[in-house]
Simulated scan of single mutants.
Amino acid sequence: MSRVDLNLLTALDALLSERSVTGAARRLNLSVSAMSRTLSRLRIATGDRLLLQAGRTLVLTPYAEHLSQRIPALAREAEAALSRAEHRFDLGTLEQRFTVRAGEGFIDLLGAALMDRVHRAAPGVQLRFTPKPDWDAQPLREGAIDLEIGVVRTSAPEMRTRLLFRDRYVGVCRVGHPLLGDTRISVEQWTACGHVMVSRTGEAENAVDAALEPAGIRRNVLMVVPSYLSAMQLVRHSDWFAAVPHSCLGNSFVPDYASANGLQCFELPLAMPAFNISAIWHPRLDHDPAHHWFRAEVLDLCLAAYPRRPAADSSLRHR
């Protein structure tokens, strides 16, 4: 398309509409002489005179009359296609599906609140949550996933991350468990009881056992399950224990989730560091206005759900 100059399309639209070189020049903020030269270029490009003198006015040739039915729409399409993306973004008419990879806890406790927030601003948006069996970055790279929510464990250096909230592990058991009385449970009592361990991959590796390892202590693990919500339901109907993120117990939108499910929580009898829950995405979506808006909605939701967030965003690498 080396011979095509899209500026001529805008000029042709003005000339056909105004039917005047002077009027078209005024409309495009050009000099009359510059518009006359543009008309000459248009005549060469189309092989048609386009506008002809008829007394003191100009009239359209038959071909120009034909073009006058098509050019206005073409000019608007070209301008829209080549304008900045944010100028084409309208939440009210946005029809898009965002695919999110998140743990069951986030989906169960915040999925409805997120959908309600999104739907009020953009009724045409759909959310699709997918399972999170691992931390493979390839689906983000390929576009199969728009956003991941969780702990950053990918080795892909190009990924963007944004801290959503800080989390920590706590113990859970059924309400009225015989070992939970007025005194704090000891690490010996805790580890001797039956435990439900959570492992997405099925392997017996997790942060709780890593924290116990330096002291040479091991838990009495009776069962391994793939999700924290499954572990919570199992201990609800037994005398077993589980360690789950504090965020799984509830939030500002669902404040009594643990008690409503017959669970009580307690501080673990060992020191464990807090950890970050982040939004993770591929940099090709950095400046997409729809994805930028969606990421902001997720962040605002998490700030409202878990308001006790540190002032410093230590995990913030890219916005």
Rank of each mutant, 00 (worst) to 15 (best):
65 E>T: 13
87 H>Y: 02
73 A>K: 06
151 V>M: 14
275 F>D: 11
162 R>V: 13
198 V>D: 08
74 L>K: 01
99 T>F: 12
126 Q>R: 15
13 D>S: 14
105 G>C: 09
184 R>S: 14
132 K>I: 01
301 L>R: 15
215 A>R: 07
110 L>I: 05
86 E>R: 10
7 N>S: 09
170 V>L: 08
178 P>R: 05
149 I>H: 10
275 F>A: 05
246 H>D: 04
89 F>I: 06
166 R>M: 11
309 R>E: 10
289 P>S: 04
174 R>K: 08
226 P>V: 06
248 C>W: 06
260 A>E: 14
240 W>D: 02
127 L>G: 09
237 H>C: 03
263 L>D: 00
249 L>F: 04
188 E>Y: 03
92 G>Y: 06
66 H>A: 15
167 D>R: 09
53 Q>S: 13
201 T>P: 03
93 T>D: 05
242 A>D: 05
126 Q>M: 13
191 T>Q: 11
41 R>V: 06
303 L>W: 12
184 R>H: 13
1 M>F: 10
307 P>F: 09
28 L>R: 10
62 P>N: 07
65 E>I: 14
196 V>G: 07
237 H>K: 08
218 R>Q: 13
279 A>R: 04
28 L>F: 07
304 A>W: 03
66 H>Q: 15
200 R>K: 11
46 T>C: 09
15 L>P: 00
12 L>R: 02
216 G>F: 03
311 A>L: 14
225 V>C: 08
288 D>G: 06
287 H>L: 11
204 A>F: 02
314 S>Y: 15
99 T>L: 01
170 V>P: 04
75 A>E: 00
131 P>M: 05
292 H>Q: 15
250 G>H: 03
246 H>M: 04
173 C>W: 06
130 T>Q: 12
159 M>I: 06
94 L>E: 04
6 L>M: 10
10 T>A: 15
131 P>Y: 01
276 N>V: 10
140 L>P: 06
200 R>L: 11
208 V>E: 13
141 R>E: 04
192 A>P: 00
153 R>E: 15
223 M>V: 13
62 P>G: 03
222 L>N: 04
284 R>F: 01
138 Q>Y: 14
1 M>E: 12
114 L>W: 07
52 L>I: 10
101 R>Y: 01
102 A>I: 03
50 L>E: 04
55 G>M: 08
267 E>I: 03
26 R>H: 13
48 D>W: 03
33 S>E: 14
290 A>F: 10
279 A>T: 09
175 V>C: 08
38 T>W: 02
185 I>W: 01
